[in-house]
């Protein structure tokens, strides 16, 4: 299968803010049609790394490469943020939800299809004149929006303002909005934050559906270990800006580095843990 090749390759990524090194020489891969989770304690540099991948920060060093299915390659650190979504096919959501609150749910999904509709409206003039090609594109855009509304169970709320939705509904809408841009890689910043167990179970179903039926790879930051362990194919662990572990769920769960970072350990235990990790790390290298 094509699952062997990587859609996103991050190499030696470094991001400094003044004297603080938020992301320090991090390298990892996101494989096609995988759900890859980035975890780590607060302040580990997850969101900074995320902002580098989606173009909101320009990294100080390193390379972020995207290989699209049709063979086109992009170096994200060189692209302005809007072209990362438009051309490299990378869409994102935000940790603190950023919907267009005063616009309806449907309008939010229409804004996400801006690039397609803008091309169809031929510099807005074709749209002003109401050319049939534009009307067709608009009808298709509404259809696509309706499809995603169906998938996130928000069809009855389509014409309500996005700000009136409940927290969980807003999170789902943000994911649907990102999917309406037609991405190949979907980056989710804490999608399960503030959700109850039932809602996060529904979220897992939605994310699996996106991966399996839309062939969209997912990179997500998450604190909810239930969600992470349940759906991730691959986990990357950051701590103090460095990558401390990288592997599948079972590997990461038992990695003494990860346990140390999350639970804290005595001084002498670290050496012991490192010795263990070296052998464990070697196993992981050969396994992948």
């Amino acid at each position: 299968m094509s699952a062997a090749n990587a859609i996103l390759t991050v190499e030696r990524l470094t991001m400094r803010f003044g004297g603080l090194v938020a992301v320090d020489d991090v390298s990892f891969e996101v494989k096609r049609d995988d759900i890859t989770a980035v975890i780590g304690p607060n302040g580990a540099g997850k969101t900074t790394m995320f902002n580098c991948v989606t173009g909101f920060y320009k990294p100080n060093a390193g390379r972020i490469a995207v290989a699209r299915r049709d063979g086109r390659d992009y170096l994200l650190e060189r692209l302005p943020d809007y072209r990362i979504t438009r051309e490299a096919g990378v869409a994102r959501t935000f940790q603190n939800i950023r919907l267009f609150g005063g616009m309806t749910v449907l309008e939010n999904l229409m804004v996400a299809q801006h690039t397609v509709l803008m091309d169809a409206s031929t510099f807005t003039i074709g749209g002003l004149l109401g050319l049939p090609s534009f009307r067709k594109a608009e009808a298709e855009a509404i259809e696509k929006a309706a499809y995603w509304l169906e998938k996130i169970d928000l069809t009855p709320r389509a014409d309500d303002p996005a700000a009136d939705l409940s927290y969980g509904e807003q999170r789902r809408l943000e994911i649907a909005r990102a999917m309406c841009t037609g991405p190949e890689l979907l980056c989710l910043d804490e999608p399960a934050a503030g959700m109850n167990p039932r809602e996060s179970a529904e979220l897992n179903t939605l994310l699996r559906f996106i991966r399996d039926d839309h062939k969209t790879s997912i990179l997500l930051i998450e604190h909810d270990m239930g969600v992470v362990m349940d759906i991730s194919d691959h986990i990357v662990v950051l701590d103090y800006g460095r990558k401390i572990s990288d592997g599948d769920v079972d590997f990461v769960r038992n990695d003494p580095h990860v346990i140390a970072a999350y639970l804290g350990v005595e001084e002498d235990e670290i050496d012991e843990a490192e010795a263990l990790a070296e052998s464990g790390g070697a196993v992981a290298e050969t396994a992948s």
Partner: peptide, 11 residues
């Protein structure tokens, strides 16, 4: 409504 979200949507 939100400039940052616009940039994330390819605008």
């Amino acid at each position: 409504e939100d400039e940052i979200a616009c940039r994330a949507l390819g605008i």
